[in-house]
Nucleic acid binder design. Sequence first.
DNA 1: GTCGAATGGTTCGTTCCGAACGATTCGAAA
DNA 2: TTTCGAATCGTTCGGAACGAACCATTCGAC
Lengths: 172, 172
Amino acid sequence: MSTVRLTNASYVVLGLIEVFQPATAYDLKRVAGQSVVNFWSLPHTQLYSETSRLAEAGLLNEEREESGRRRRSYTLSEEGQAELDRWRAEPVKSLFEVHDPATLKLFFGADPATLAADQIALHEEKLREYEETRANLAEGTPRGIALALEMGIGLERHFLDFWRAATEQQRT
Amino acid sequence: MSTVRLTNASYVVLGLIEVFQPATAYDLKRVAGQSVVNFWSLPHTQLYSETSRLAEAGLLNEEREESGRRRRSYTLSEEGQAELDRWRAEPVKSLFEVHDPATLKLFFGADPATLAADQIALHEEKLREYEETRANLAEGTPRGIALALEMGIGLERHFLDFWRAATEQQRT
DNA sequence: GTCGAATGGTTCGTTCCGAACGATTCGAAA
DNA sequence: TTTCGAATCGTTCGGAACGAACCATTCGAC
């Protein structure tokens, strides 16, 4: 219950737990993998370290199975809920950051057409995934979740347009 | 001259040095700040650690001023050049990753309109920057650099559209 | 010539990342 | 009803990435 610095990764965990509690790190991993990592990427191992960090800080309650897998299961504590609510109401004054290995290589002189072929295939696949998710969205899905999905779909379309254009211009 | 693991950050440094050599970490910081960090974000301190890491590995030559600031100035070594060329020719099999605090908060239930106001202002500012950069682009600018800039501009437009739409839908 | 601001440069503690691995559970074939 | 491979579940660990904080040099204005 020492004070820890809360990062965006912390709020990923708190936010997911709020909805899916009680949940194990593995539960979070599965659900994060098709939602939140699309605009806040993190490795699954961080869900393990972050949950125990937050439990130690008193923002999560931890309960551990006595036998078998000895899973640790988490729920939001009152402090955790309060912290999450506080964060949610607070404004955001910074922009996104991107790590795009393909554009990086393009920038440093790699052949656009070669890059484009691979990137187009990958982005198409991703777009298909998103659209499937959207098709399966339940009735009462919160607005924020639906909006975030639209964000991702729009992003994929943008990248697809970009790489397609990059191939075409090749003839100049 | 031990072997180090080369990361994308390493190629950011190698790629920039190739063009601007001889260059100090500070030189890289300035030039990176308005180009490469837009699609491969990194803190400026990493340019210091990465340059010395690469010098130690023999991919950069380091020369240090004897007096005053005692700046370390770097040039590409033959091995560095070879490594960069190898990397440039190698295909990219992965997609971008994003960290967007605003979409994250949106996803977890923050008010879209409130977020949108701030985000629109920030993205407009960024877009203005990009367009200024484009306006000042020299004649013989390599194609990759121009393309990467278009990528960034398109990205900003996408985010602007998204947040504007998010505000409008508010009335539903 | 001095003083504040801008520039230049680095250190350090923490978080993030991901390869690698080990342990349970499940299902199908023997 | 064992057994073996695949899927699931969970964690460790070393190194890269991050960013706050700080100090030093140089510049410009008064």
